[in-house]
Design a protein around this nucleic acid. Structure first.
Length: 832
RNA sequence: GCCCGGAUGGCGGAACUGGUAGACGCAAGGGACUUAAAAUCCCUCGGUCGUGAGGCUGUGCGAGUUCGAUUCUCGCUCCGGGCACCA
């Protein structure tokens, strides 16, 4: 080989990526600071649990976020893009027990390893803001928020039935029970009576619901899920007197219009009135043993599967206040104590559950709402009718339509003082006590004399005991550690016991996004000035699996922090993108399925840029992404082609120059046009819906045009100015996706400048405009021919040309033309 | 059971507010270069009939609206997700 041959520099991702990562780190390129001259943009991806290694789901999530962050920087925004660790949680304890180590040790080792993995992906984080929630400097502030919530009455403790996961040995919140099983380990949860601390999220139910309508930047799917979860229903709460007692049983119903159809009453087995009902009652023993059996069964069965309806007559009656009828009271297994009042007026004609129950125990069925077009007959009905209609057999309300009757009946009850409108939510208060070691201690002290007392603020943080020396106890829950719980009452000074439960780890993730605004602030959880500058998060990105859990809790916390005076916003995340899962061989990547692809392997084989590019190219972000090893190679090939092109045309590109738009050759014009079309397209794709897959294919098209016109096989010489324009555009458009690669090529063709300092390219509408169009000629809506016409051809000319077209004439063939439809810039349709 | 999504070549996916279906990529086949291979480059690529020009057909299924439907309406099938005795 002669020395004159140009040896193009090979694309070597490893050295390029190392170089740029070092550069970004040492220059703190992505440090965010308040800068009022630029508009702020806060982009955030859900922070990871430090499980040990990054997986493909993370790569996808963070690649998407990084494109947004880098794109917004190019658009002149002052971008905050932080990263941290959701680092409390059970796996750390399990791993510590297994490895005879300490959860903190395991956690921090993982963080170190994973931080390195994230760096190797070239993500543009402001690493100076990194936080780890297991750090006392973080949870100290969480404890302070807790105490302030306690002060305000948003925190309380109660003894109640909770969801117990026997495998995790801890209580779970309702949101953490997925189909009756633990969200983490799939173990069926069991109800258990326990004392615990609760956040009054129900106080915010109405606001959490209302706010959903304003979250226009959220997927409607997520909003619907939250709406259903909150489960608001409006109805009547109404008292039924118990015959032979001065006590009343209160019910809630959403169908007050059916109240004349009540034929019995069902109450939960745990209902507090049961004792009253059973006093001096010959059936007492029988009913009591039935009730305890039901309660026991509920405990064992978990609340998942529907059991057959079962009940027992208590021997007592109550009185329907609307018609004075005596109706029997039953204890029934399907009545929930936790919803409404724990007692249900049973209307078998109009409620399927009551219908089944009535059939089984041979109770009367009385239709009171007659739908149009059918006649309900209690003897022949096979299921309850829930249709609207006109009231029958309903006293003075007879004849009203059910909708109007609902209000009239509520008004009547209100007037007669035995009932009122009532709003009920399905949402329950958030139980945050966890009987585990690796979590933020709940800063309360229990004193026999003074009751529960908050830890004085100056004593915060209440830190976890470290116990590094004793492996045996490194993860023992706090209630087994005297040194931890033995303390004195802050009020009376007597010996007292510290609260030994830790907080649900979802508490940490409910406010971390706000802490990023001032992560090192030492006076308070949040620096108000910084927080009001950066919040709310403009774009939040993460998996849809948090649609209810984390996203609802974060919304709740935002409102709480607002009410505590820390921030002035109502909602934490203006826009939300829920990305799909990463799938391989048809199912989610998981160790148990053995279909895991390790991002580190990909990075060492192809580099971070290729890995990122593929994860963005293979599917739009909201859809599941099917992993395809060959597809990765395709992306690698694409980058190689660009690299080769730039290296072997370096001299021409360096020449550059401004594009003289009025004296371009046809080929130059084609390339120039394609460049501007691509800028427009890529910008639209990113701006409009983050469809990076189509943005990337746009750049691929531009490169295909470039290499066919200007590459080694070019037919005519192309001016360096158009080539440079195309290459510049390709590099900037692609750089949010493949930052190292584009930075490197940029400096080779623009020595001494940095791609970071470029602004996003703009397109020229005139340059992007085609000067010829293909017009389709249709006969009867079927494509029969095509015409190449200048862009400004008017409709009449188009019609004339279409009718004169040889192909068209063949199909018209003597038939009479009924109608000709001309659609601008698209087609001519001839109807014969 | 109820509430949301979705279904397009061999595969991942494109197609603006009803107007050329299949962009881009992968796979496959053919060719060039090479002693050979890799890499690279060029061509073909929904199905079907036809030597060809071209025809017919085709976006889960069945109807409908329209000059024209992947797109809108109605009725199904299948797949995915959420909730699940919430009165």
């Amino acid at each position: 080989m002669s020395t004159n041959d140009i040896i193009p520099v090979q694309y070597d991702p490893k050295s390029i990526e190392e170089k740029w990562q070092k550069h970004w780190l040492s220059n703190a390129t992505y440090r965010a600071s308040t800068d009022s001259s630029k508009k702020k943009y806060y982009v955030l991806e859900m922070f990871p649990y430090p499980s040990g290694r990054i997986h493909m789901g993370h790569v996808r999530n963070y690649s998407i976020g990084d494109v947004v962050a880098r794109y917004k920087r190019f658009r002149g925004f002052n971008v905050l893009h932080p990263m941290g660790w959701d680092s409390f949680g059970l796996p750390a304890e399990n791993a510590a027990i297994k490895n005879n180590s300490h959860p903190a040790r395991w956690t921090y080792d993982n963080i170190d390893y994973m931080r390195d993995q994230l760096r190797k992906l070239g993500l543009s984080y402001d690493w100076e803001r990194e936080i780890a929630t297991c750090n006392p400097k973080y949870y100290k502030w969480e404890q302070k928020i807790f105490l302030e919530m306690y002060e305000k009455g948003i925190v309380y403790q109660k003894n109640t039935r909770v969801n117990w996961c026997n495998s995790c040995k801890t209580v779970l919140a309702n949101e953490q029970v997925i189909e009756g099983a633990c969200w983490r380990c799939d173990e069926l949860v069991q109800p258990r009576e326990m004392n615990g601390w609760f956040f009054k999220i129900t106080d915010y139910a109405e606001e959490l619901l209302d706010g959903l309508d304003k979250l226009k930047g959220w997927p409607s799917k997520v909003r619907t899920m939250q709406r259903n979860w909150i489960g608001k229903s409006t109805g009547l709460q109404c008292d039924f007197e118990i015959e032979g007692s001065d006590k009343k049983v209160s019910i809630f119903t959403t169908r007050p219009d059916t109240i004349f159809g009540v034929t019995f009453m069902s109450i939960a087995a745990e209902h507090p009135l049961l004792d009253t009902l059973l006093a001096d009652n010959p059936k007492a023993d029988e009913v009591r043993s039935f009730a305890s059996r039901i309660i026991a069964e509920k405990q064992q069965q978990s609340n998942e599967d529907l059991t057959e309806k079962e009940g027992i007559f208590t021997g007592r009656y109550c009185i329907n206040p609307f018609n004075g009828e005596n109706i029997p009271i039953f204890v029934a297994n399907f009545v929930l104590m936790g919803y409404g009042t724990g007692a249900v007026m049973a209307v078998p004609a109009h409620d399927q559950r009551d219908f089944e129950f009535a059939k089984k125990y041979d109770l009367p069925i009385t239709p009171v709402v007659q739908p149009e077009e059918t006649t309900l007959d209690s003897l022949t009905m096979e299921e309850a009718s829930t249709l609207p209609g006109n009231l029958i057999e309903s006293g003075s309300f007879t004849g009203m339509d059910s909708k109007a009757a609902q209000q009239a009946i509520i008004d009547f009850a209100k007037e007669k003082n035995f009932g009122d409108t009532k709003i009920t939510y399905r949402l329950r208060d958030w139980g945050i006590s966890r009987q585990r070691y690796w979590g933020a201690p709940i800063p309360m002290i229990h004193c026999e004399k003074c009751g529960a007392q908050p830890v004085p603020i100056q004593d915060l943080p209440v830190t976890l005991p470290e116990d590094r020396d004793s492996d045996q106890n490194s993860c023992a829950p706090l209630h087994q550690r005297e040194a931890f719980f033995e303390t004195t009452c802050p009020k009376c000074g007597e010996p007292a016991r510290r609260e030994t439960d830790t907080m649900d780890t979802f508490v940490e993730s409910s406010w971390y996004f706000a802490r990023y605004a001032s992560p090192r602030f030492t006076e308070s959880p949040l620096n108000k000035e910084e927080a009001s500058h950066w919040l709310p998060v403009d774009q939040y990105i993460g998996g849809v699996e948090h649609a209810i859990l984390h996203l609802l809790y974060s919304r709740f916390f935002t409102k709480v922090l607002r009410d505590l005076g820390y921030i002035d916003i109502d909602e934490p995340f203006t826009n939300l993108l829920t990305q799909g899962m990463v799938i391989k061989d048809g199912s989610k990547m998981s160790k148990s399925k053995g279909n895991v692809v390790d991002p580190s392997d990909l990075i060492s084989e192809y580099g971070a840029d290729t890995t990122r590019l593929f994860s963005l190219f293979a599917a739009p972000p909201e859809k599941d992404l099917e992993w395809n090893a060959k597809g990765v190679e395709g992306c690698f090939r694409f980058l190689n082609r660009i690299h080769r092109f730039v290296q072997s045309n370096k001299e021409i590109i360096l020449e550059g120059g401004t594009v003289p738009t009025d004296q371009l050759t046809a080929a130059e014009k084609d390339l120039h046009r394609k460049t501007h079309q691509t800028i427009k397209r890529v910008t639209d794709n990113i701006e409009h819906n983050f469809h990076f897959n189509t943005a990337i294919s746009g750049v691929m098209e531009l490169f295909n045009t470039l290499s066919s016109l200007a590459g080694a096989n070019q037919k005519q010489p192309i001016g360096s100015h158009v080539i440079q324009e195309a290459v510049n555009s390709i590099l900037v458009l692609l750089s949010p996706m493949t930052p190292h690669f584009c930075s490197e090529l940029w400096t080779t063709i623009h020595p001494d400048t940095s791609i970071e300092d470029q602004s996003w390219p703009t397109w020229d509408e005139d340059a992007a405009k085609e000067d010829e169009l293909t017009i389709v000629i249709q006969i009867q809506g079927k494509v029969r021919s095509r015409l190449q016409v200048p862009i400004d051809t008017d409709d009449a000319t188009l019609e004339k040309m279409a009718l004169a077209d040889a192909n068209a004439i063949k199909f018209i063939d003597g038939k009479t033309i009924k109608k000709v439809i001309v659609v601008k810039k698209k087609l001519v349709n001839i109807v014969v």
